Computed example of a mutant assay.
Amino acid sequence: MTASRWTDLRPRVISAAGLIVIGLGAVWLGGIFWRGLIALSCGVMVWELVQMLDTARQRSSRVLALVAGSCALAAIYLPPALALPLLLLPSMAGFGQMERGGVTYSVFTALIMLAGYGIMALRSDFGLTWMLWMVLVVVVTDVAGYFAGRAIGGPKLWPRVSPKKTWSGAVAGWTGAAVVGLLFAGTTHAGPGLAGVSIAISMASQIGDIAESAIKRRAGVKDSSALLPGHGGLLDRFDGMLGAALFLLIAGQIVDFPPGVE
């Protein structure tokens, strides 16, 4: 183990602490505070996506970000059937604005919008407890993977796309997620099946992380932006949350959630 493995730890911790304070405050308050923060985040992530894929589109990136944020905020106040067109509108609006990466933009923007809607709906429909559960699963997955990957190392998960991620880090993330699931199962009416759901959420967050890494690799950039010292941009920080929220939005149509709760 060398000190160079941990050189980015201090700025990561400082940035993470600020994000945690803002995020927990908004989650706790709920309502327009939480929805506004998520809508703003969706807009920023779309801006970062355009910046990565087509650097010549400075004005377009701002316009599409505004469209995305506005649609995300409006969608949560509408019935789901009417919200769906709004969630896909930013993807459609980008087709004519992009000279490069239009397909990647449209698909990933749709995922951002659907995930943002899922995160807002989770807080509204299931309350603070289950919103905190998902956040903790994703955070523990990231933290456990970070430390295990650097302390243990070993075979790489997908070296061509994300050379720092290892199987040891992935498994550590699943283990940490299972522990979170069992802790919540013990303090709520959810059964032990929550551990399995938590592991699946952990895997989905890792897939979201890798998907964003693939976009960065294709775009030839290290970070989605420089907004967060030690973390890059919002997409770098919340790619796992996007994967987790999107998976939960889909899985919730297949299995009862929360498991064991009538």
Rank of each mutant, 00 (worst) to 15 (best):
T2I: 15
A3D: 12
R5F: 15
W6T: 04
D8K: 12
R10I: 15
V13H: 02
A16P: 06
G18H: 11
G18P: 01
G18L: 14
V21L: 15
I22P: 00
I22M: 06
G23W: 00
L24H: 00
W28Y: 02
L29W: 06
I32Q: 13
G36S: 03
C42H: 01
V44E: 05
E48L: 05
V50D: 03
M52H: 07
L53A: 00
A56K: 08
R59D: 08
S61H: 01
V63F: 13
V67G: 06
G69V: 02
S70D: 11
A72P: 05
L73W: 08
A74E: 04
I76Y: 08
I76S: 03
Y77F: 13
Y77K: 00
L78Y: 01
A81D: 12
A83L: 07
P85G: 04
L86D: 09
L86F: 05
L88K: 08
L89Q: 00
S91L: 08
M92G: 06
G96H: 00
G102Y: 14
Y105I: 00
S106V: 12
F108D: 10
I119W: 10
L122M: 15
G127W: 14
G127T: 05
L128E: 14
W130V: 05
W130G: 07
W130A: 03
V135R: 01
L136E: 02
V140R: 07
V140S: 13
D142R: 05
D142S: 12
G145S: 10
Y146Q: 13
F147G: 04
G149I: 14
A151D: 09
A151G: 11
G154H: 02
W158S: 03
V161F: 05
K164L: 15
K164P: 10
K164Y: 13
T166G: 10
S168I: 14
A170H: 08
A170C: 15
V171H: 06
V171Y: 07
V171R: 09
V171T: 13
A177W: 00
G181P: 04
G181M: 05
G181L: 03
L182Q: 04
F184Y: 15
G186P: 04
H189A: 07
G193M: 09
G193N: 06
A195V: 09
A195P: 11
V197F: 08
S202K: 12
A204E: 15
A204C: 13
A211F: 06
I215M: 05
R217P: 02
V221E: 04
S224H: 04
A226T: 12
A226S: 12
L228M: 14
G232N: 09
G233L: 13
L234S: 12
L234E: 05
D236W: 08
M241K: 07
L242C: 01
G243R: 03
G243T: 14
L246V: 11
L246D: 05
F247R: 12
G252C: 14
Q253F: 06
I254A: 04
V255N: 10
D256T: 03
P259I: 12
G260I: 08
V261E: 01
V261Y: 07
V261N: 04
E262A: 10
